[in-house]
């Protein structure tokens, strides 16, 4: 199977602390994957590396059919290559309406002059409405994002990522602070999204991961500890020792 993203042999050190240690991990097209691991396992740093926020000391990050190295690209270039990222805290533009938030994220030319002379089109409006429908915010398009509930903000952010039409979605703890119903809805959105693109979810919550029903990668001390179905990894003794055992103790 051709890989969408290949991370191999990546290491990064902060002041002597090895946050990522010779990490290798691959993602296929249209795959849903959960990454779990205890605090400090390097989950967020891994996302920082893929999205260009942190440059690794060693290793390779290869993207797509053309085998582009992501290490030489800036954050915005990587985003335009088709990698979307959702932060742990919901980060939407609270001073702007839901429609404006989505319009900004829509796949369109990103240069300042194109943006300055941008005209509203029926096609764009239709795309915005389709995404709003998908994330359940169709009735809130004219509302200011700051007024939304916590869960709605999370969905809006996911919606913005979808509007970007990425090929790989990195989602950091989407279910944190959500009610049970909200979680279910989030799961649906993510599973649906994963039909047409790769979706990588970093999560703490085992219930949520179980509901995603996908391949799981366990990170520990900056490297892959185990990989497989949730049942497979939860029965792995080393995983139990370092994470689950401690987590449930």
């Amino acid at each position: 199977m051709a890989m969408l993203l290949e991370v191999s042999g990546v290491s990064v050190t902060f002041d002597g602390f090895r946050a990522i240690n010779n990490l290798s991990i691959n993602f296929a097209e249209a795959e849903l994957r959960a990454i779990i691991g205890p605090n400090g396992a390097g989950k967020t740093t891994f996302m920082d590396i893929v999205t260009g926020k942190t440059k690794p000391d060693t290793g390779k990050v290869i993207w797509g059919e053309k085998n582009i190295s992501l290490l030489g690209l800036s954050e915005s270039q990587i985003a335009r290559e088709g990698i979307g990222r959702k932060f742990q805290k919901p980060t939407v533009f609270e001073a702007q309406t839901v429609r404006q938030n989505l319009a900004m994220a829509l796949e369109n030319p990103r240069g300042p002059f194109a943006v300055l002379t941008h005209k509203k089109t029926a096609r764009n409006a239709a795309r915005i409405e389709a995404i709003a429908e998908e994330i359940g915010l169709i009735d809130s398009l004219t509302r200011v994002a700051g007024e939304l509930s916590h869960g709605q903000k999370q969905w809006l952010e996911i919606g913005m990522l979808l509007a970007q039409e990425p090929r790989l979605l990195l989602v950091d703890e989407p279910a944190a602070g959500m009610t049970v119903e909200e979680r279910e809805k989030t799961t649906d959105i993510l599973r649906k999204a994963a039909k047409t693109r790769a979706v990588v979810v970093v999560e703490h919550d085992m219930e949520f991961v179980r509901r995603l029903d996908c391949k799981v990668t366990v990170l520990h001390e900056g490297a892959v500890l185990a990989e497989g179905s949730l049942d497979h990894v939860t029965s792995d003794q080393t995983v139990i020792d370092v994470y689950l055992g401690r987590g449930h103790a």
Partner: peptide, 9 residues
């Protein structure tokens, strides 16, 4: 950062 990760330079 959000704007940057949306692909704007």
């Amino acid at each position: 950062a959000r704007v940057r990760f949306l692909g704007y330079h």
